[in-house]
């Protein structure tokens, strides 16, 4: 908090941002919105506060990991302020005093106790990664996660390095490799 005092402001929780985000910016924004979604779900679903708290701890970790990149970036101060605001709002039912105090220091004039719950943005939750299914001779052997815009060569080389795939092609001759980007890799062997 003290470290970020100069960049934080009362922009609100789960705020909108215009323009393209850097990777670190997108990561923090996704974590922020995902945290709100998870805390909401855990409280609504039989009050699983322990997992809600765990989700908030993950957001704190992401804040630590991204803060140095973000304090000087284009959308950084706004996204850091929003993420910390979301953290305070979601944590405040559990630890209300400390959250009110930081909220106040961020420059908000209204009590946190009277603040509405933030609305997370489903678009922010979209990940830039996709799951690709790996087959050998048409049989499911494994799956990998790759960047959505990964090249065909990238996907193919990751597939070949997969432990389970390499076990099934070991000592055999590769006839051909079919790659459907974003979906599937099928290695045909003999």
């Amino acid at each position: 908090m003290d470290e970020l005092e100069d960049v934080l402001s009362s922009v609100g929780a789960c705020v909108r941002v215009k323009g393209t985000l850097s990777q670190a910016e997108a990561e923090l924004r996704r974590k922020e919105h995902d945290t709100v979604r998870r805390v909401e779900r855990d409280i609504e679903n039989k009050f699983q506060f322990n997992t809600a708290i765990a989700a908030m701890m993950e957001l704190v970790n992401t804040l630590y990991a991204t803060k140095d990149d973000l304090r000087g970036s284009a959308h950084g101060p706004r996204l850091l302020s929003s993420a910390i605001s979301s953290l305070l709002v979601t944590l405040s039912p559990i630890a209300p005093h400390v959250c009110e105090e930081i909220w106040d220091r961020m420059g908000y004039t209204r009590n946190l106790a009277a603040e509405p719950w933030p609305a997370y943005d489903l678009d922010a939750l979209k990940t830039d990664e996709v799951t690709v299914v790996l087959q050998v001779n048409g049989k499911l052997r494994s799956q990998i996660t790759v960047a959505a815009n990964a090249s065909q060569e990238d996907i193919q080389s990751q597939a070949m390095n997969d432990q389970n795939v390499s076990r099934h092609i070991e000592g055999k001759t590769i006839v051909k490799t079919i790659v459907i980007p974003g979906k599937l890799v099928n290695v045909v062997v003999r």
């Binding site: 039912p93 559990i94 209300p96 509405p116």
Partner: peptide
């Protein structure tokens, strides 16, 4: 009471 208070504060924030 902590369980109840989280529920109360959460529901208030939900409107």
């Amino acid at each position: 009471y902590s369980i109840g208070d989280v529920v109360a504060r959460y529901k208030r924030m939900r409107g």
